[in-house]
């Protein structure tokens, strides 16, 4: 099968952003690169029928492939590739620690809810767009986003540092 000319342009133009999305899903740069390339290979196979706007299709492959990897034990998800951040002594407001805690809490979200958060608040997809990517109803996207934000709100570690960080 020959490569379509617009495929190369799409990969070149969009892959940096897609890599960031993949990273937010799997939280490991190596895994993210693998996830992105896997998604792009799958997209290559289906390019003829993807149409003019490949993004939703590629997002869907990213989310679903990540979900299927996470399900398989042989490719277990690694929560982080970096040691936990420590508070910068110069950061009197505790912003760095705050972010580290929030990042960790984001990682504790269930896979599906994290995907909703990434699509809605990082990729700025609308609820119908996110629903189309995730293959669920708009109502499910709303409820998953609401649950995710609620979990972040009441995360014990966030609550533990909140008084100091926000004072």
């Amino acid at each position: 099968m020959r490569e379509r000319p617009d495929y190369a342009a799409y990969v070149t133009e969009r892959s940096p952003r897609l890599l960031r999305t993949a990273y937010l899903l799997c939280r490991d740069w190596g895994l993210a690169e693998d996830l992105l390339q896997t998604a792009l290979v799958k997209a290559w196979r289906a390019w003829r029928r993807i149409g003019d706007d490949p993004d939703p299709y590629v997002y869907r492959i990213l989310v679903n492939t990540h979900a299927s990897w996470a399900r398989r034990r042989w490719r277990g998800e690694r929560p982080t590739d970096e040691p936990p951040e420590r508070a910068d002594p110069a950061d009197a407001m505790g912003t760095a620690e705050d972010k580290a805690v929030l990042w960790a809490a984001l990682g504790r979200l269930p896979r599906r809810q994290r995907a909703v958060v990434v699509l809605r608040y990082f990729e700025d997809l609308t609820e119908p767009q996110a629903a189309a990517v995730l293959g669920c109803s708009v109502g499910t996207v709303k409820s998953q986003a609401s649950k995710a934000l609620a979990k972040l709100r009441i995360d014990p570690e966030i609550l533990a540092v909140a008084p100091r960080g926000r004072d």
Binding site: L102, Y121, R153, I158, A162
Partner: peptide
């Protein structure tokens, strides 16, 4: 809420900004 929606968006932007090319 200890963090705002803006914090969440900034966090995801910051964390994913160091993508190796």
């Amino acid at each position: 809420m200890p963090h705002t929606m803006q914090d969440l968006r900034e966090l995801m932007e910051d964390r994913s900004a160091g993508a190796p090319h």
